[in-house]
Design a binder for these strands. Structure first.
Length: 900
RNA sequence: GGGGGAUUAGCUCAAUUGGGAGAGCGUCUGGCUGGCAGCCAGAAGGUCAGGGGUUCGAAUCCCCUAUCCUCCA
């Protein structure tokens, strides 16, 4: 990779680490705060599946939410990270401005009730200005503080020594977190912030660092609604890209050392030069940003799809493809770029390199799919322009464009371009209006609160969690440490209604679904795709049926109903799982590992797990794969799985350090955050996976694995369903039973069934053909013989007995072919229903006669209606007795029609 | 999670207001033919996604289900 040209501002920062690389900046920041006692933590995943309030990690503090709220036991009170983030709020600005991104990295240092304002400010200043760190000249820096945060003001002015001209007080919209919180809310933790700005060569001030001092709890509306927090926190964020731009003296984040080569690579695949100030330059930056974001997201197994984070990825990809298309690129090109991204980011994120091929494949498929969508849209567009032309308005209506977009995915920008080529205007305001209407119809989404609190929170502060002993035992004694009913913690659970007054606090009643938390349990809470255990809790005088088990924050939640007795907090209970169901779960889970290994072997290393469900003797396994699996391959996979079952391979599980597991080649999923010590489940020589689930001790116990389905879940993902053990046996029996019944009905051996069925089917077809044809043709001669002549036209009117409409039509066709001019009307009845079909030959049609008109009157006679085309019409009625009358009426009216 | 759309021959898609299920490509058969998609003739191939309803009559209108596409959150 050639070094970027624009790093030319040598001497810009006297005494600074000139041209500091982004990689060095990242490392310097983390090292600096380590020297201040912060624990260096790895970046959290980009897609935090544990956090329902966000689709992507939006800021550095996201992984510390529970720390800030005191919702977990703290292992450290100071931390520093470089966090990969993704935001789409400002997506329209990406490429247009120097500093907007979707994907970016945030450097942060955090304090959980430890250091506060003074240290945060001093250290930030030290890092930015000290010669051996960033060494930025102080005169280029200025700061802001919250309007009445005198504490922060004093630290900046008195302790750091900044002149008053360099400190600005700002209101709650700029210098409070969350913005505007004091007057507008939300309630909860909040605080003032202080920002550090850098004066760019062009004279603009750029914010490089935001220090948030969470020191209040907001309760209600002003005044006096900000209560001091007992435990105050620090949350700071320094944008890596903009700080690097500052250090490297470039005018745009896109021109720093880890981004400019990517922009240049985009230019290269587009076959042109990158010129920053042009429309195409903006497009190239946008493509670079989006492809970088998508490379990271897809790396974490977020594939383009139709909802939530999947949809974000899809939208980013399509925007990028569209930009390419607007520059004249007609073929997939984005997929050539993830390698460049991985190369530029290899120091902080070496794991990206491992998935480049897979990521590129996913992107390519999406590109092709979008190009197909556009092609499909182009056909409709032609029709649209035809109507525009007819109307003579020269305007593409916004409603039409919106329909094309929301229904067929055809981008409005492209439509505008095409319209311009035809000298048509495009109604953007109408389009936006229509889209707003669409958004409203779709229903504004209910936003999940950023900080949710639940009944478990107070438990989390007091205890580490439930001890799970279910790997080795199926029964244990445990103490009740929590009872949750109707989303609240209770002190007791009673089986008789209306005795609550006798109990302390809230009491949950008999019959309701409630949750019991124990300090120790053999129950497996649903996770890793394996569904929760069922079973029973028992104690002297009482019992509780567990119908499901879940997990949350280290606690095992036993969900179920009280059967008898009363349950109090602190009670010791005997917890017993349903052992036969658990055995079935073990079989299915171990079979899943065997299946995963077999898929990798037969399809290749790209066939990695996407999702999994393990139920009793039943499993569903989703994995990445391009297309359907052909029958022989599927059979080979099933055979391999069963060969490993028959071989009775020993299964073992042990806890080992993460690094060791990686070294041992254990299957790991990207985008999963693993703890430092992991549980590795090994099937000797066949499979090694990190897995918290329960397994058989020998694969032989699985019995047999039968694949029962292979299907698509979404583009690029396939799903295999299979049964094991008892359920497999039951399936074989059912199939055999059905086969025997069929064989008995046809009185042939089961093996001859297919041949016999084929013969029968053919015979039936032949019979049907023979039966239909002669009936129609036989009568033709008779009908023609019985035709009357009305003024030179043959008229055939007859009761066709049981013939159906198709036969009558055919008959009319034959008659028309044999003699014309001719008019034919046939009637037929079945039960109390009458069907009439009328046809006239071409000459009569030319004379202005119409079969549709002709049939109207006889149809009325039989109590019905009818119609059709001029040369052939049909009708029906319900008065079967009147068929002769109807035919007579038909004779009269045709005579009249011909006579005039 | 919600809005819109689609599902017809092996494939790509047509079918005016409800009135006879079609085309191109592919397949098969026969014939012609030195040529890059050879030509001509003929044939086979359909539960109009599935189920219910309205109607004399439904590929077409209404409802439900399934699958896919698409937009919004």
């Amino acid at each position: 990779m050639t070094p970027p040209r624009a790093f030319s501002h040598r001497g810009e920062f006297p005494g600074a680490d000139r041209d500091m690389k982004a990689d060095d900046l990242r490392e310097a920041y983390l090292a600096f705060f380590e020297s201040k006692g912060c624990v260096r933590r790895p970046s959290d995943v980009l897609v935090p599946r544990w956090d329902p309030s966000v689709l992507f990690t939006p800021a550095g503090m996201n992984q510390f939410k529970d720390h800030f709220l005191g919702k977990c036991k703290l292992e450290f009170t100071r931390a520093t990270t470089c966090q990969k983030c993704l935001r789409t709020g400002d997506i329209d600005n990406v490429g247009r401005t120097p500093r907007h991104h979707t994907f970016f990295e945030m450097l942060g240092n955090f304090s959980f009730g430890d250091y506060f304002k003074r240290e945060a400010i001093h250290w930030a200043w030290e890092f930015v200005t000290a010669r051996n760190w960033l060494g930025i000249a102080p005169e280029k820096l200025s700061v802001t503080v919250y309007e009445n945060d005198d504490e922060a003001y004093r630290i900046w002015s008195d302790e750091i020594g900044l002149p008053a001209t360099k400190i600005t007080r700002m209101g709650e919209d700029d210098n409070f977190w969350p913005a505007g919180a004091p007057t507008q809310g939300p309630d909860g933790v909040c605080g003032p912030c202080s920002e550090i700005f850098y004066r760019m060569p062009d004279g603009s001030d750029v914010e490089i660092w935001n220090l948030v001092f969470t020191q209040f709890n907001r309760v209600g509306n002003p005044p006096d609604n900000l209560r001091p927090l007992p435990s105050r926190n620090i949350d700071t964020g320094m944008g890596l890209e903009r700080t690097a731009a500052m250090l490297q003296g470039v005018d745009s984040n896109f021109h720093i050392d880890i981004l400019r080569p990517l922009v240049e690579a985009v230019a290269e695949v587009c076959g042109r030069h990158y010129e920053p100030a042009t429309d195409d330059g903006r497009r190239m930056r946008r493509i670079a940003d989006h492809v970088r974001a998508c490379t990271f997201a897809i790396h974490e197994n977020v594939l383009p799809g139709n909802n939530e984070e999947k949809y974000v990825v899809k939208r980013l990809l399509r925007r990028a493809v569209l930009d390419g298309r607007q520059m004249g690129i007609r073929d997939p090109f984005l997929h050539t770029l993830p390698g460049t991204v991985a190369g530029l980011m290899r120091r902080p994120y070496p794991e990206l390199a491992e998935t480049v091929d897979r990521v590129a494949g996913v992107i390519k498929r999406e590109e092709e799919s979008f190009l197909a969508t556009i092609d499909g849209g182009l056909q409709r567009i032609d029709r649209l322009f035809a109507t525009v032309e007819r109307s003579g308005s020269g305007l593409v209506k916004g409603t039409d464009a919106a329909e094309l977009y929301t229904t067929y995915g055809f981008p409005p920008e492209l439509l505008e371009t095409l319209a311009a080529e035809r000298n048509c205007a495009f109604d953007w305001s109408g389009f936006r209006e229509a889209m707003e209407g669409h958004g409203q119809r779709s229903g504004a989404g209910t936003r999940v609160e950023v900080f949710t609190s639940g009944p478990l929170d107070s438990l989390k502060k007091a205890m580490h969690g439930t001890e799970f002993v279910g790997y080795d035992t199926e029964q244990t004694d445990g103490k009740v440490i929590g009872i949750i009913a109707q989303d609240r913690l209770c002190d007791a659970l009673q089986s008789e209604p209306a005795r609550g007054a006798a109990l302390q606090g809230e009491a949950a009643r008999h019959g309701q679904a409630v949750t019991i938390v124990l300090d120790k349990t053999p129950f497996y809470g649903e996770s890793g795709g394996q569904v929760g255990d069922t079973g029973r809790l028992e104690w002297a005088g009482g019992a509780f049926d567990v119908t499901d088990t879940q997990r949350e924050g280290g606690f095992v939640l036993h969900v179920g109903r009280l059967v008898t007795g009363q349950l109090d907090l602190g009670q010791t209970v005997k917890a017993t799982i349903d052992t036969s169901r658990r055995s079935a779960l073990r079989r299915a889970h171990s079979a899943t590992h065997l299946l995963h290994a077999a898929l990798q072997h037969h399809l290749g290393p790209h066939a990695v797990q996407q999702g999994s469900k393990v139920d009793a003797d039943l499993l569903r396994f989703d994995f990445s794969h391009g297309g359907a699996i052909d029958a022989p391959t599927l059979q080979a996979i099933e055979s391999m799985v069963n060969a490993n079952v028959f071989a009775a391979v020993e299964v073992s599980a042990r806890l080992i350090p993460l690094g060791e597991a990686r070294h041992a080649g254990a299957m790991m999923l990207f985008g999963e955050k693993y703890p430092d010590v992991v549980r590795m489940v090994s099937m000797d020589g066949v499979s090694r996976e990190l897995c918290g689930g329960t397994h058989v001790t020998s694969t032989g116990q699985i019995g047999v694995v039968r694949i029962i389905g292979e299907e698509s879940v979404s583009a690029g993902t396939r799903r295999i369903s299979a049964v094991t053990g008892h359920r497999a046996l039951e399936r074989f029996r059912e199939a055999e039973r059905a086969l025997h019944e069929a064989a008995a009905t046809l009185k042939v051996p089961a093996a001859e069934l297919p041949a016999r069925l084929a013969a029968l089917s053919k015979e039936m077809k032949d019979l049907r053909r023979k039966g239909a044809a002669p009936a129609a043709s036989l009568s033709v001669e008779q009908l023609l013989a019985a035709a009357t002549d009305v003024g030179g036209t043959k008229v055939v009117i007859a009761d066709a007995r049981g013939a159906d409409t198709a036969a009558m039509r055919e008959c009319i066709d034959l008659l028309r072919r044999k003699g014309s001019p001719i008019a034919v009307l046939l009637g037929s009845r079945e039960g109390d229903k009458v069907t009439l079909v009328a046809g006239i030959s071409r000459e009569l049609e030319a004379r202005g006669l119409s079969a549709g008109n002709w049939i109207r009157e006889p149809a009325a006679v039989v109590g019905g209606k009818g119609g059709g085309r001029p040369d052939l019409a049909q009708a029906g009625g319900k008065l079967a007795d009147k068929l002769p009358e109807a035919l007579a009426a038909a004779r009269d009216s045709i005579a009249e029609m011909l006579g005039t």
